[in-house]
Design a protein around this nucleic acid. Structure first.
Lengths: 190, 190
DNA sequence: GTCTATAGCGGGATAGAC
DNA sequence: GTCTATCCCGCTATAGAC
């Protein structure tokens, strides 16, 4: 069962689960579908995960951790300008949604399906990610690049980014980076 | 069964269904839960609706129609200024999400659960609503109030508004109108 | 670590009386 | 228009062999 481990096998299964959860939604994804995608029978799944909930928790943990890691990397390889950091965060966010793919989408859209215990256990991760955004936005406000309420600006920006999952076509003419840049341009004071 | 009717009874049941769909999500809402909320037994439900899908379609149709109606009313009782119309649309949108309540939220968040036939039948309604937004945004762009790509600006604004469902607390200090005004302020060119 | 087999439950939907 | 009763199905999860 390996409750708290991160064996390569479990990692791989988590990746496949994320894909199905995005396509079908958590509730409509059955353990039989998951097993088939993984090339095993449904009974075997429960050797790796205690129950379906634990699969969701694993996906969401990975998705949030990825987002955190990619955002940190983006900020480090980034000049000091607050405007550049804003761009970097927006690009990183969309990168986790459309390139790294799936797990972060599940974290954002299926969070409510977590049971209270898992939600409590993972909320510090989500909070850490949002805190990074908070800092970047604070700096941008302080420099007068954008204006408005710290909290609301954060929510609106993340909302605009998250909702791209519902309409953006990665095979269309625009890249995720185009989207990120356009969003930042839209809110910059001129 | 009354497939295409809008009897007061059916209207009332649709309203109750919308509430449960928002609280639990469509997939996790059972016909037994719906029936209990309506004060009848689950078997009786199918006298009013052919199946569970039809309940969803009824909720989404009502939610989109409401949004359309409220937005139209907001624009009509509104001076010609593009900025005022932008405010009016944002306020109207949040009003349907948090005051009128529930049905429009379902339309936005459970659209993918519609079967293809229902989706095709209802998409013209959604398109009409989005077209209203498109016009108001075109005017704002033409007047130089905001800047950016017509399509992307629309998507970003609606995304920011829609995502409020996930974090906004109507019992907190801010009113929906506060949110609408802050969002518009955030994107206005200064 | 995977299999087969199946328990046990709860879901959507139907039939026919009232 | 609502009830009771129930069918049938598919779901999650378990048990034990290999």
């Amino acid at each position: 069962m390996n409750v708290m481990n991160a064996s390569p096998r479990r990692k791989e299964l988590t990746r496949l689960a994320a894909q199905l959860f995005v396509q079908e939604g958590f509730d409509r994804t059955t353990v039989r579908m998951l097993a088939q995608e993984m090339g095993i029978k449904s009974g075997s799944l429960f050797h790796h995960f205690k129950d379906k909930q634990e699969i969701l928790a694993a996906v969401i943990e990975e998705g949030t951790q990825n987002a955190l890691g990619i955002a940190k990397a983006a900020l480090q390889s980034c000049p000091g300008s607050a405007e550049a950091r804003l761009h970097a965060m927006a690009r990183a966010h969309l990168e986790t949604l459309f390139a790294d793919r799936n797990a972060h989408v599940v974290a954002l859209f299926e969070w409510r399906r977590l049971d209270p215990a898992a939600s409590a256990h993972l909320s510090h991760l989500r909070d850490a990610y949002e805190a990074m955004w908070g800092e970047v936005i604070d700096d941008a406000l302080a420099e007068g690049l954008i204006h408005g309420d710290r909290f609301l600006v954060s929510r609106f920006i993340l909302g605009a980014l998250n909702w791209t999952v519902r309409w953006y076509d990665p095979n269309g003419p625009r890249t995720p980076d185009d989207l990120a840049d356009e969003l930042v341009a839209m809110i910059l004071s001129r």
